[in-house]
Design a protein around this nucleic acid. Sequence first.
DNA 1: AATGAATGAGTCTTCATTCAT
DNA 2: GATGAATGAAGACTCATTCAT
Lengths: 197, 197, 197, 197
Amino acid sequence: MPKGIPLTEEDLSSRRREIFAAAVHLILEKGFQETSMRQIAEAAGMGKSSLYDYFRTKDEILVFVIEEETLIVTRQAEAIAALALPPAVRLRQIMRMHLDFMQANKNLLVRLGGEAQRLKPESQARINQRRYAYQDLVAAIIQEGIDQGCFRPVNALNAARLLINSLLSALYTSRPTGSAEEMLDEAVEIFLHGLRI
Amino acid sequence: MPKGIPLTEEDLSSRRREIFAAAVHLILEKGFQETSMRQIAEAAGMGKSSLYDYFRTKDEILVFVIEEETLIVTRQAEAIAALALPPAVRLRQIMRMHLDFMQANKNLLVRLGGEAQRLKPESQARINQRRYAYQDLVAAIIQEGIDQGCFRPVNALNAARLLINSLLSALYTSRPTGSAEEMLDEAVEIFLHGLRI
Amino acid sequence: MPKGIPLTEEDLSSRRREIFAAAVHLILEKGFQETSMRQIAEAAGMGKSSLYDYFRTKDEILVFVIEEETLIVTRQAEAIAALALPPAVRLRQIMRMHLDFMQANKNLLVRLGGEAQRLKPESQARINQRRYAYQDLVAAIIQEGIDQGCFRPVNALNAARLLINSLLSALYTSRPTGSAEEMLDEAVEIFLHGLRI
Amino acid sequence: MPKGIPLTEEDLSSRRREIFAAAVHLILEKGFQETSMRQIAEAAGMGKSSLYDYFRTKDEILVFVIEEETLIVTRQAEAIAALALPPAVRLRQIMRMHLDFMQANKNLLVRLGGEAQRLKPESQARINQRRYAYQDLVAAIIQEGIDQGCFRPVNALNAARLLINSLLSALYTSRPTGSAEEMLDEAVEIFLHGLRI
DNA sequence: AATGAATGAGTCTTCATTCAT
DNA sequence: GATGAATGAAGACTCATTCAT
């Protein structure tokens, strides 16, 4: 808002979040690609071209949001990972937290994840860095369980991806067999059972 | 080609397949939405508007292919399901067949699956019918295992979705921990272990 | 206009000319770059995008017109060059013809020539091919005069460029010292005098 | 830089020159219109809007530079014109000086001349005033030669324009027949020969 | 039956300029 | 005095679809 003063990196970031927050309903309704820069600008209450002071490109909006949201989930997962609890319990808590986050954000991450396939490799790489951090975190817990002898020796990263993916079955079905929580719990139970010695 | 003689539904279908086969490489390279009708027509060696004799709309192409490919996988899965083998073995075979099919088709189904999010609800419903058939087939085998007492009593449909989803972790990662076969095998093993009593 | 029938190369060319003819007044008034594709389309009585069936790019319009007009001048010059007249006379006639053409076309070529500086090298090369043909034609007549001993031995191409350039002084001044014809005649006279032995 | 103290007209002018000097490479590379105010400001190491303290409009930059450079050439030509040498010799020297200047400035004036066509009439008039001064200077020398009886009686202004224009043939060809100096010398020789009695 | 010319809506993006700080 | 955030207007171009031949 102040006119002659350069925006700090922080201002930029928070403004970016505001812009997206203002436009998120459009994107959820119609998809990202189908939402035009004009509409986003209108929703954000700014001129079409001011948008370009915050995002150099339409795709940057997508990258920004995915990075941002993945980071939030990762941060929350880190907190859980640090607790003094058995691996299985921490994994359960992380998945629940993840589910809660997804639902609170209307599955935004899942929806946008689909659109991210179109991004240029360079942008995909940036996104993947964030995803990897989350996967690694989960994988570390699994590895811990393996080392402690409470899990079978499997490839921890592979297993982590499998677990995280379970969320999709729970969230992204048009033929639910219960609440998302119930579906997820059952999936996690099968997974943990599968790791048990 | 035959003039004056209306095309049978079968001719139509096989022509549709030909058209898509001719254009599939474009779609794999650039994505479906990024491939224009003109390019598809050119690849298929026909005029832009002749395309509309086979697909009333661009989106119909997407729906057709997804339906078609899902149907093929389902048919092959049905054959395996009918074998006189223990449920666990049949599930393993189905997943392997599915993986082979995906790889033979360059993950087309996964790629297109992302694009399908944009289709209008009506089209999505049509696609889902096919998906359900496949899920139900897998679920039936799981249920059989449960009934025979070799699997724990879980919601079979939920479990089926979980198993099918495992393919994604194996296929769709930019940080593989082995061959797709190995990753899938491990995932299936964890799953089956998880169902074991 | 016919809808399902491919345009012959000739149709294309004549349609291109029509389009340009319809829009030339806009371009003369405001300059080429300042004239938008929409305006050109409107002037030509067609949809914005139909324009792109005739010119793949806005710049192509520029290239087309310059090539076309240069070709016309060259053709007329060829006719004069073939006459059985002394070199000096033929040169005078060519310059007069060129002047007439320029005036009949409102100096279009001069105006557009300025804009052509912005074209990408590839397009400039295409244009230059045409310009060279014209320059070479004039140079040949000069060389003829040199060979016949009625002109001093100068570099014919250099001299040709000089002569052709004289048109600019005559046409493109905001402080004329007579009619364009008079100014040109005097310039040509100085030039020919300068070549005389 | 000095705060509170208004800039003298001279400071303004020298600051303008500095700004342009800093940006000239951009303009030579991409053309004037293709260079944005932001880029010019960056090159000049100042804020976008500070530019507007020195040039009220982007076009003013163009006008300023053309005026400035034309003035420099004129000043140098004046020095030569004042020498006690035969008209023909002075004309030769002026043309050489002009060529040197052009080459030292990478033909900037020619390039910008093309862009100047777009300026509004008012600005063009300002530029033309400067051009006229230069033309008049050259014309005066020619007139002198005529009065002294060493040149044929031609319209001096017309001839001056013709001579100055020769530079273009020498400088602005993609198919040179020698060094620019050689081409120019030959052109000037033809011209002077053409004036000789 | 098959084709391609025609279209209008819509896309992202750029830019010179202003104005509040 | 100097700055950069904000903007509105505009621009080239693409595309799915229709329709006359």
